[in-house]
């Protein structure tokens, strides 16, 4: 059953904005699906984070298409894409860029690093040293780079897609909570369904479908749409619902560390984008529920009791969502 019935003219301008968002998002999604098949939820979440101007953390085992996902996104949106392979010897300046002294002109010139792009793919981010991680994460939060006392603003849209491999933890520096908190959402791609994997053999057989991927929109358009997403209505009841949910993670006896106020803001922004992607100009509790796990779970630390009972933060958040009453009639 689909409830995504569009309103007939009632939303006014907001509704036409939303329809534009849906149209663009459908095109981007269609393009990406030629590369990443059978993962509509992952694609939807990726688009949500893109429109909400957040950063995405993809956590999964190798080979499931983490990098492919990020690349496909970069291709489908006609914008600059940079890729950084994180290794233990990577330095902060390898990301942010360096100032180079020009002897002929007797001055320093700033050579922008790979972070100066619309979409930055940080592969295996947990392999870099904490110092380097910190440099990237600072850029993520502040959307600017400070080198030698000069500040260089990053272009909008700016989205970091970082991947990490949870299985092979040898020689890695796990991201501390404070840095995980800067990612708006965390997804795991997961193995494809058998049918999708069969299709994949065909499509990826001769050459990468990435090469055939033509851009369907551009950075300016995305920037414009992101501004429109910010206008999506969040009813007072839904705001309270979000705060209640975040509060519940802080008071839950199963969690050692709850979600931060930044998580609240991320959740609201993501919910706006998610609602817009579904053609609505207002946020439903359902949007919040659908986003609660990807937006909140990676920021939480389970308490000792939950650890002994092998309850993951995902399960705990889902339990909280299942028990929080949705906002009723005004």
């Amino acid at each position: 059953m689909s409830l995504d019935t569009h309103h007939g003219g009632r939303g006014g301008g907001a509704q036409t904005d939303v329809e534009e968002i849906v149209a663009v998002a459908d095109r981007v999604r269609g393009a990406m699906e030629t590369v990443i098949g059978g993962k509509p939820e992952v694609l939807r979440l990726t688009l949500t984070v893109l429109l909400a101007e957040g950063h995405l953390l993809i956590e999964d085992v190798p080979g499931v298409g983490k990098t492919m996902l990020a690349k496909a996104l970069g291709r489908a949106v006609d914008c600059s894409v940079q890729r950084v392979q994180f290794t233990p010897d990577l330095l902060p300046s390898d990301i942010t860029g360096v100032s180079v002294y020009h002897q002929d002109r007797h001055e320093f010139e700033f050579n922008p690093g790979p972070v100066f792009a619309n979409i930055v793919l940080g592969d295996e981010i947990n392999r870099a040293s904490p110092k380097t991680q910190a440099a990237l994460l600072e850029c993520m939060a502040e959307r600017q780079v400070s080198v030698d006392g000069r500040t260089h603003a990053l272009e909008r849209p700016f989205m970091v897609v970082a991947t990490q491999n949870p299985a092979d933890m040898k020689g890695t520096y796990a991201l501390p909570e404070a840095q995980r908190d800067r990612f708006m959402a965390r997804v795991s791609v997961g193995y494809p369904a058998p049918q999708a994997e069969l299709d994949m053999i065909d499509s990826h057989g001769a050459r990468s479908p990435l090469d055939a991927l033509a851009p369907v929109t551009d950075a300016v358009r995305i920037r414009d749409l992101a501004d429109k997403v910010a206008a999506v209505h969040v009813a007072p009841g839904v705001r309270r619902y979000i705060v209640d949910l975040v509060n519940a993670t802080r008071t839950s006896p199963e969690l050692r560390l709850g979600a931060s106020p930044r998580a609240t803001l991320h959740l609201v922004r993501a919910a706006r984008a998610y609602a817009a992607l579904h053609g609505r100009h207002y946020v439903l509790p359902d949007d919040v529920q659908a986003l609660a796990v990807p937006v909140l779970a990676h920021r939480l630390l389970p308490g000792p009791e939950a650890q002994t009972r092998r309850r993951t933060p995902e399960q705990i958040v889902a339990g909280l969502v299942a028990h929080l009453p949705v906002p009723g009639p005004r």
Partner: peptide, 18 residues
């Protein structure tokens, strides 16, 4: 059922009801 739910959620969460 779908229309009733849509009307209710619009009445609850949208800026203007259906």
């Amino acid at each position: 059922l779908g229309r009733l739910a849509l009307a209710e959620e619009a009445a609850r969460y949208a800026p203007a009801p259906l």
